[in-house]
């Protein structure tokens, strides 16, 4: 575990301090996260691993501001989040976070370019034509400029996931959260998508957390945090580069 950095350090895009999460189940309280401390720096690509049921997804939801921790503090791009209401958290998500899910989750009613432009349109302050132009650029970076007007259903699984990566990165988030981004792909596509994440992470300096079961992927990340039974079991950050 790296030494806690103050949030004044603008290179720290994510900081967790003593994050716990408890659920009520069958009349008793079950704690699934027991005080997680974590820090991610700009440009860092970190693998979050652990067996099923270890609390990875819960932790990712908390980091993604989709769930509130029971206790502890969470900073996103230097902003402490525990006292923010739903509207402020939503705004913070649109400003600083990007998501890639296991099953791409593109909106079937929209074209690829429109899907990619969505974070820009949600954030606002941009003309739709400019958002679409930027989306087409992002699609070009993932090698799918020619499929801009296609519907997600017309694309292969690997292509769909590349569109999802383009969507996650189009608004230049400080932090990208990828939940099993290659979990549903064959090896070739899996490698392609990971390389894409890696390249964009290097080029743009985006902090990336990749939840993965795939040890080949985890090994290629800058760092690796293993969660077991709601604890950080292993935090091997041997080559963090800023």
């Amino acid at each position: 575990m790296a030494e806690a950095t103050t949030t004044d350090d603008e290179n720290v895009v994510l900081k967790l301090a003593g994050i716990t999460k408890a659920f009520e189940a069958a009349g008793s309280i079950v704690e699934v996260l027991h005080g997680i401390d974590l820090e991610l720096r700009r440009g860092e690509l970190c693998a979050l691993t652990g067996p099923s049921g270890s609390g990875k997804t819960t932790l990712l939801n908390i980091i993604g501001l989709l769930a509130k921790p029971t206790s502890g503090a969470l900073w996103i791009a230097g902003q402490e989040t525990s006292r923010l209401d739903d509207a402020a958290l939503t705004k913070l998500r649109s400003r600083h976070l990007g998501f890639v899910f296991q099953f791409h989750h593109l909106i079937g009613a929209l074209s690829c370019a429109e899907n990619v432009a969505m974070p820009l349109l949600i954030r606002g302050g941009v003309r739709p034509s400019a958002a679409l132009a930027k989306a087409t650029d992002a699609l070009e970076q993932v090698g799918l400029a020619d499929r801009a007007s296609a519907r997600p259903a017309q694309l292969s699984g690997g292509q769909q996931q590349r569109v999802a990566v383009a969507r996650a990165l189009v608004a230049d988030p400080a932090l990208l959260l990828a939940d099993e981004p290659t979990g549903n792909l064959d090896t070739a596509n899996s490698d392609a998508v990971f390389e894409l994440l890696r390249r964009l992470n290097r080029d743009r300096g985006t902090g990336v957390i990749v939840v993965t079961h795939d040890s080949r992927i985890a090994e290629r990340c800058d760092s690796r945090v293993e969660i077991v039974d709601g604890w950080v079991h292993d935090d091997s950050r041997w080559k963090v580069e800023v």
């Binding site: 939503t90 705004k91 400003r95 998501f99 949600i122 969507r167």
Partner: peptide, 14 residues
């Protein structure tokens, strides 16, 4: 509902 969830995750307000 899944698409609504994605939109909300991307920062679309309620």
């Amino acid at each position: 509902s899944k698409e609504v969830g994605i939109l909300r995750a991307m920062g679309a307000a309620r």
